[in-house]
Amino acid sequence: MTDLLLRLGCVLAAFLVLPLLVGQAEHKVMAHMQGRLGPMQAGGFHGWAQLVADGVKFAQKEDIVPAAADRRVFRLAPAVALLPYLVVLVAIPLGPDELVGQSLDAGIFFVLAVLGVGVLGSLMAGWASANKYALLGALRTAAQLMAYELPLLLAAASVAMAAGTLSLPGVLDAFHWWWVPWQLVGAAVFFTAGLAELQRPPFDAPIAPEEIIFGAYTEYSGLRFALFLLAEYAGIVVLSALTAVLFLGGWHGPAAGRLGWLWMLLKTGALSFAVIWARVAWPRLRADQIQRFAWTALVPLALAQIALTGTLRVVTA
């Protein structure tokens, strides 16, 4: 029982802390890449408490629900967008020997399925807002999700084939270093597709402020808006962690027995950094470019990866 509570507590803590870390890192990394300093005031040292301050501010803002909105759906949307990431975190292993919230047999399947729920939050928000920009954003979100869900699934399936299991700890148990080059294409597809699902730049056409204000989140303010932001950063964490587990060996590394958790966190952090970097480095893609990229580049690549995985696996068996 205590073990269970401990696990739950750790998961919750990770869920609350890691996104904030990523958010703060984004502030600072972006700023430095753009030749700025970023937040410096809040908390004193390099503005470490900036996001805490933001949180406090959001909590005090008025929570506006437009008159024409579908109130119940509108209010529920942020929770729907956020909670899947929390649930997913349970299944991601941090280190060897059951250092995981809960080991699930069908881990990959479970994770991908639950992540699919997250986009529902955006759709609900866009639909319930009774705002045409919000609706447009929601539809773009949906289209984007659908386009990128497929390469994501296929790439993940490739790993499942390689490992012969759907359990995330099982995948890590089966991991060898040469998986990294073997599944490299899959890794790239998975990560890119994940990026698009999170609507992170350069795939942020659904919330492009220059075109459609803020997409599905246009009408949100206050705490609910904060939850959407939190969901975005939690998504970065989950995506990076999943990529690390599936393609980069998770806790594998020197002295994995003792330092496995560290390797895992490092890999996650590095991938999160890449996410931030991508935001600074690339211009936004147009909606049609996003679609074309998914269908004509990522899906064929993912299929090729599956073919490669399957062939090699059977040949070596």
Partner: peptide, 13 residues
């Protein structure tokens, strides 16, 4: 356990 986490999440929200 997953359900429990969900409950925790809902409580949190």
């Amino acid at each position: 356990v997953v359900g429990l986490v969900l409950v925790v999440g809902v409580l949190f929200v």
